[in-house]
Write a protein that binds this DNA or RNA. Structure first.
Lengths: 163, 163
DNA sequence: TATTCATTGGCATCTTATGCCAATTTTATC
DNA sequence: GATAAAATTGGCATAAGATGCCAATGAATA
């Protein structure tokens, strides 16, 4: 984890690219008050440092035929190292699983699953999730409405800089 | 919701842009087996149709000083239309809230919150979340490990196309 | 205040984006 | 199955953007 010291311009760059990753370097440079050369150099540095992990298109789930989002809490049996890894690897490989976290609280894992509809989810639940190694309990919470999604990360201001 | 009929090439374009939104149109065209002109035209159409909602940089949360992700379940009192909206709007406006859904099950809302550390979360919880209008119960689940994140949507194949 | 190190701006060149039109393919209809 | 109409594709010319290089500017240090 090579610590990277972000200055104000870096933060502006990151904020801008979170909002619109397709900004041309010229536009970005203008937005952060730099000329294109140093701006591009900073972006490349941020990428190389791993601060920017990638650029992704955000799709309309409904439009893509994926009308149902489900948050799935999963409890697994006391995991030995090996089976824990097996479970994680299985989860990562499932295309329907958009995100997965090991969490504290009621469940051990919290997955976000995206499918076309209820019928599709039933198939996925009974045919795939329930058959994963070590699963002892599954709780499905259906997304009824999306209030906010893909919100930008709240980049903190550098120490000692007021707002 | 003007239904948009996606063909195989559209799906390839969407898959490619989910993976890497910074692909040049030339590269993208090559990847989907089209020449640049029609490729760019399709991308523009997908954008105009709302299928592509935007392009975002994915940042390293830790590197950006945001070391703690929390999934927060919130119960709200029997909502009248007005207060329900008030709650939603408040949530949308919070920078720490990266996503928020109205869900079925135990909680009414499920938020994903990103902060620097536990101290930061305590401040946010007591100073902000607990003061939101109508909140009756809050359950915080801390992300201990991220197994998968920003997974691409599982684009289905056009009907009648095997894999 | 002098010196060194880091960062910026501007320039030349190469690559990409874009609008336009003829050619090809697909779809619908007779 | 043949023909006509509509949609989509490729290629080309031009405008815009990306990139590497170098001198100039600014900041940090001694």
């Amino acid at each position: 984890m090579p610590m990277y010291r972000l200055d104000t311009i870096d933060r502006r760059i990151l904020a801008a690219l979170q909002r619109d990753a397709r900004l041309s370097n010229v536009q970005l440079a203008e937005e952060v008050n730099l000329s294109p050369s140093p701006c591009l150099r900073r972006v490349r540095q941020l990428e190389a440092a791993g601060l920017i992990r990638g650029y992704h298109a955000e799709l309309d789930r409904g439009g893509a035929g994926l009308g149902l989002t489900v948050f799935v809490g999963i409890k697994v049996e006391r995991h030995h190292e090996a089976e824990a890894n097996a479970f994680r690897e299985a989860v990562v490989a499932l295309p329907e699983v958009v995100s997965a976290h090991l969490v504290s609280g009621e469940s051990d894992f919290l997955l976000q699953v995206v499918v076309a509809d209820l019928a599709d989810y039933e198939r996925f639940l009974t045919g795939t999730l329930l058959r994963l190694p070590g699963v002892s309990d599954i709780r499905s919470n259906f997304a009824i409405q999306t209030v906010k999604e893909y919100g930008p990360l709240p980049l903190t201001r550098p120490e000692g800089e007021g707002r």
